[in-house]
Write a protein that binds this DNA or RNA. Sequence first.
DNA 1: AAATAACGTGACTGTGCGGTCATTCTTTGT
DNA 2: ACAAAGAATGACCGCACAGTCACGTTATTT
Lengths: 220, 220
Amino acid sequence: MSTHDSDRLPPERPGQPGGKRDRNRKRRHEQLRQAGLRLFLDHGVDQVTIDDLAREAGTAKGNFYRYFTSKSELVTAVLAPVADAVRDAFDQAQARLEEAHDDASLFAAYQSLALGLIPVAMTEPDVVRLYLQESRAPASGARAPIRALADEIRERSVELTEFAVDHGLLRIPDPRISALAVVGAVEQLAWSSIGGELDAPPAQIAGTLISLVLEGIRSR
Amino acid sequence: MSTHDSDRLPPERPGQPGGKRDRNRKRRHEQLRQAGLRLFLDHGVDQVTIDDLAREAGTAKGNFYRYFTSKSELVTAVLAPVADAVRDAFDQAQARLEEAHDDASLFAAYQSLALGLIPVAMTEPDVVRLYLQESRAPASGARAPIRALADEIRERSVELTEFAVDHGLLRIPDPRISALAVVGAVEQLAWSSIGGELDAPPAQIAGTLISLVLEGIRSR
DNA sequence: AAATAACGTGACTGTGCGGTCATTCTTTGT
DNA sequence: ACAAAGAATGACCGCACAGTCACGTTATTT
């Protein structure tokens, strides 16, 4: 009969939401997530094996599959906080932009995007770094979730700027080119900053980039 | 005695420089290079096995090792044309910059950089794409040569702009930030363009980016 | 406290990988 | 034409991997 042929691994959550089972489960989940983050950063997602992950998390191999069905699913979990923050920040910015009517409110919309992104970049630099490290991976395999997030970021950035242009808030010839250029600049600066190649404080980097975008190099 | 303990695989070149051996050898080398380029793009460098490469190149596995000692060495060979062009272009630009004295000659130096890079990007888009795809990989493993090239590009870009600032040719507060922002913008635009997400012609993309950098968004 | 069910373990299996090598084929030098 | 050397082959070895599973442990329910 099999009411649910598919209730295989991993099983449902334990009984009480605040009980010992629930806490233990969350702890293991987080241990595996942290192990993944460390190993992925050091060796690249593709090079890390399930054995490596289990060992680094201090548990047995078979147990890994009680929490994640695949490495790809773990990658999604590792990325989750950043992915959520990114989506929220774009939603916010889009909502504000839809009610914008002048230069000031346009600026405020873009500012809300930045203000939504900066906190997570400060609290989770390693996750951001992992994203940047593998963000242009082929769309198949364990790195796929990272690539998907990258595609979403580019898409929504372009969307946002096209909306501004369509509603007469911004007057630039090709919004797609400008939006992608800014995304590329932001990502490269974040990458160099997190990697320690740029010792300037993030606030200064952001300020320099904003004035560069608004006024160009000539103005200085 | 062993005059040469280390003349193991891969062996020296065959007798005549223009003979059949030489031609065959060059052909196989190129077949393996093309096979690598295709497979690396489709599946990512780390996911491709030596068996895959040999099969795609239409040869036997053992033969691979007559041409490359490792996957990493093949990656280096795949990248070679772009790596060479990049180095040459930076050398050129640096030489011009050292003799620059005003705005016009500064512009000419940067222009020579662009003019050195554009041809190889047009003739070898796949190699550029592979570089962009894996350019932020960890420094160990088969992707290492790609990462090395990326580091070199960033380093020399910063160097170039710092030189211009130090010699009073450019007046910007932090040359490192500006240089990296431009590198990021260029790479992102190249990535999107090669990936078909931007249908604008390269010349228009370049023009828009240049005016964006020089004058900012406000000017339009 | 007994029964139940999720958690946790590590051995096990099959598969596929990197790298080697004896052998055969092709080119070259004489 | 013949010998010498490089090119090419694919079977083979050892190993490491993904995924499974029977069994022991710990928390939860009754």
